[in-house]
Amino acid sequence: MTTATIDKAAPTRTVKYGSMSRDRAWALRWSYFFLVIFAIFFLTPPIYMFITSLKSSAEISAATNPWWVFHPTLENYTGLLTSNQFLRFFWNSAIVSIFVVTITMLIAVPAAFALSRMRFWGSATLATGVFLTYLIPETLLFIPLFKMFAVVGDWTGVQLINRWYVLLILYPTLTVPFCTWIMIGYFASIPKELDEAAIIDGASWFQTLTRIFIPVALPGLIAATIFAFTVSWAQFLYPLVFTTSTDQLVMPVGIITTLIKGDVFNWGQIMTGALLGAAPPLIIYAFLMDYYIAGLTAGATKG
């Protein structure tokens, strides 16, 4: 309405008034252009996996259009979901991930709280050190770690290699430093007066953590949880190296070791397994993202 009035008052200069929305329109066009390219780039592999998972082995090896299913079948799905072996991999992955997330949170949250709030000698250096440990890649670490576990096995008789629970020791070396770092950032964003108020109200450090910091930093906690889960669900190198018996394998390793027999690639089942394996993280993202965003907008303290 306002624009119309202005247009009447200065009809020769109408072009100028539209410039803001014209800028916006162009920005939107470019955004859509790049977002569409991104979407195609990232969605092509899963779509190809999905298409292939609906094909029979014969159709996969036939020289037809690979982007189309001529005789759709669910035999790959029924085959995997009725195979005890595959269900075992799935179960192992789930148990390992749940334990790793729990262990990670139990260590990372108190560690982050201590490093961000309880000023003690060397706390700043320690916080940086925590992050630096994350920068060492697992490709460098797996050989010495293997040797260490072998030695521990020789000395104590506790056999860790080729047991799924060795992963509960290995994965936290990746997840704890990063999650601690994320949580330090979130805790640092909580105003200092909030813990001072809690201390004056009579809360101990532990109560300040559990009753004030954890609820207030819930979005950060969820981000860290998602990260820890994704890392342990998708981790490939450590389980490949440390576990070999089929009953000890987690899904990513299980799929490639059992579905590739010599030079025979069971593509249909590989694709199906990969899709099914990608489902849990997707579901967790879908549920927790809502929570995550809701948490971000809540909890203002200042006026």
Partner: peptide
């Protein structure tokens, strides 16, 4: 046995 009121209120947001 003291109580304090802060400049930015420091209310527990949750």
């Amino acid at each position: 046995d003291i109580a304090m009121v802060f400049q930015n209120y420091a209310l527990y947001p949750h």
